[in-house]
């Protein structure tokens, strides 16, 4: 049943969001701390576990794959609802800060990827 997979996905998201919200309350921050990431970890654990086979294989798995495939269309819709007009009115400061942050972060990707690699090699 396709809906079993969709229900598993929904359950992971709701559970992750509740935990993220709770961490926010515990830390006194008005934010959902990592809820989506926690939900993703649940889904990864479920899809790697034999216990959840009935919810992740066959038709049930297709229910999850459908939403995974809808990701790009949803991102396009998300782009279409951004406040782009607001960003261009925000002035040069906003553009410079955004561009500089991205440029420096891009440059750090190969550096930190190497850090991770060398550590993995040392362990091996």
């Amino acid at each position: 049943m396709i809906v079993y997979g969709v229900a598993l996905l929904s359950g992971c998201l709701v559970l992750g969001m509740v935990i993220g919200e709770s961490i926010g309350v515990a830390l006194n921050v008005d934010a959902n701390v990592g809820g989506v990431g926690i939900a993703m970890i649940f889904l990864v654990l479920a899809s790697n576990s034999k216990k959840f086979k009935a919810l992740t294989e066959g038709a049930a798995g297709n229910g999850i794959k459908f939403w995974s495939a809808m990701y790009i269309p949803i991102v396009v819709a998300m782009a279409a609802r951004q406040d782009v007009a607001g960003a261009t009115e925000g002035g040069i400061l906003a553009v410079v800060a955004g561009v500089a942050a991205v440029a420096v972060s891009f440059a750090l990707v190969p550096v930190l990827s190497k850090v991770g690699n060398s550590k993995t090699i040392e362990k091996d």
Partner: peptide, 16 residues
């Protein structure tokens, strides 16, 4: 469609 709820749902699905 592009709101936070659908976005989060689809992001989590990509972890499958």
């Amino acid at each position: 469609m592009g709101g936070g709820m659908m976005r989060d749902f689809a992001i989590v699905a990509t972890a499958f």
